[in-house]
């Protein structure tokens, strides 16, 4: 295909990259949207999580041609929204952040969950985060961060 059209953080883009180029590389290198990280490059760690049509996906697994006509949201866009601010603040207050490398992906996974389910149980939160590896926190405070975001953000989701 010749051109790829998509919307990223509310802005329309037209790309002419090789279609198999990874969305993650386009975001990080061409758009300097570096909140999404590469932790493994094979969909195991979730550090590259972004929203595709409001659902969390691994941007390292997506050829850029596959986002034709899609709406992509990275943390750079999401943090500007009330929902984004709510999760970022709740994570900051809960001790959910240590080294921070997994955190942007965690925030996006949490967003995807709360969009679907504004009042998740502990198991639902843990399931929603199960594709996002964290080596620092042991997860409990991240789970608390999501719960806090759900509570504080009532009506937002």
């Amino acid at each position: 295909m010749n051109e790829i059209h998509c919307r990223i953080n509310g802005t329309d883009y037209t790309f002419s990259f090789p279609g198999e180029r990874r969305l993650l590389d386009v975001l990080r290198e061409d758009l300097q949207l570096t909140a999404a990280k590469e932790g493994c490059g094979e969909g195991e760690c979730g550090a590259c999580s972004v929203l595709k049509d409001r659902r969390v996906v691994n941007s390292c697994m997506i050829p850029v041609a596959a986002v034709e006509g899609c709406e992509i949201m990275t943390l750079e866009g999401f943090r500007q929204t009330p929902e984004g601010r709510c999760i970022v603040e709740a994570f900051s207050d809960s001790g959910a952040v240590q080294c921070g490398f997994c955190t942007p992906g965690m925030v996006m996974a949490a967003a995807s969950l709360l969009f679907e389910n504004p009042d998740p149980s502990e198991v639902q939160i843990r399931t929603a985060l199960s594709g996002n590896l964290c080596r620092c926190t042991g997860y409990d405070m991240i789970v608390q961060g999501v719960r806090l975001a759900a509570e504080r953000g009532r009506g937002l989701w």
Binding site: A35, V97, C99
Partner: peptide, 23 residues
């Protein structure tokens, strides 16, 4: 008594730059 970590917000908000993020 806990305080909010001084680096929490910049990391949770994706502002923090790791080596691969720095041009």
């Amino acid at each position: 008594s806990p305080v909010r970590r001084v680096d929490a917000y910049e990391k949770a908000g994706g502002y923090a730059r790791y080596i691969a993020d720095i041009p």
